[in-house]
């Protein structure tokens, strides 16, 4: 009876907690397995993925969290869009192809670039050491070393967890437990210091939105003028 009451109380307490909206960005080199990972999380088949040269997102509910994950293209030519999403992200999921040893240096450089951003420093980072199913895949410890991960996250005051995993193992309930564990960890860290983090993100995004809005208005005005000029010359 007593335990039932206690259960009820904790349930009630949980229920009273506000719903928290959290945005995460998923980055990493092309072919690392980002899209396969989000597909699996979403309960869709992680097979049949095409390279992302752009943006896609998934929404999921996790306890009292409404989580949105941005899956961004990792190819060299599109990588520079990542920075547009830093301001609004509460945390980073960085996916690594652990079996692609030749690209570890490039992976490291890409990660340095992400963490170096003042909009990211201090935010939690989950590293998914993916493709563990492949022969010759680097172990967790080897990935940490190849990326000088410890030094890097300490430098930027980012709490970090690394999970060795395989995104193609299954989807939905059968998804690799390490991915789930990593996601829980990330949300747990975000919840711990939510108010401060949230305040920072609100501030940064308001600033960015205002800037984007300004740019948009300026462009609309320039185009309006071009159309007007053309209109007065010809009747196209």
């Amino acid at each position: 009876m007593f335990s039932l009451m206690a259960n009820c109380c904790s349930w009630l307490k949980r229920w009273q907690e506000p719903v928290r909206k959290v945005t995460l960005i998923m980055v990493g080199l092309d072919n690392a397995g980002k899209t396969a990972t989000v597909r699996g999380i979403q309960g869709e088949s992680p097979e049949d993925v095409a390279p992302t040269v752009g943006f896609s997102k998934i929404d999921l509910k996790q306890g009292r969290f409404e989580v949105t994950i941005f899956d961004l293209g990792g190819g060299k030519r599109i990588r520079n869009i990542w920075r547009n999403y830093y301001a609004e992200s509460y945390g980073v999921i960085f996916v690594v192809d652990s079996s692609d040893i030749a690209r570890m240096e490039e992976t490291k450089q890409a990660m340095i670039e992400v963490l170096n951003s003042p909009k990211i420093s201090g935010k939690p980072v989950l590293v998914l050491a993916n493709k563990q199913d492949r022969e010759g895949a680097l172990s967790e410890a080897d990935v940490i070393e190849s990326l000088s991960l410890e030094k890097l996250v300490n430098e930027h005051k980012c709490l970090c967890q690394i999970e060795p995993c395989s995104a193609i193992m299954g989807c939905g309930k059968k998804i690799d437990k390490s991915i789930k564990k990593g996601l829980y960890w990330l949300l747990h860290i975000i919840a711990k210091d939510f108010d401060a983090l949230n305040e920072r993100i609100q501030r940064d995004t308001t600033e960015q939105k205002a800037y984007e809005e300004q740019k948009k208005l300026e462009r609309a005005e320039r185009v309006r003028r071009i159309r007007e000029e053309r209109g007065s010359r010809t009747s196209d």
Binding site: G54, F55, S56, K57, R77, I81, N84, Y85, E212, K216
Partner: peptide, 18 residues
């Protein structure tokens, strides 16, 4: 990539784009 930047595609957050 330059075109994506020029079109401000990153401001399209309500849909998937490629």
């Amino acid at each position: 990539a330059e075109i994506a930047e020029g079109l401000s595609l990153h401001t399209y957050r309500d849909r998937e784009w490629q």
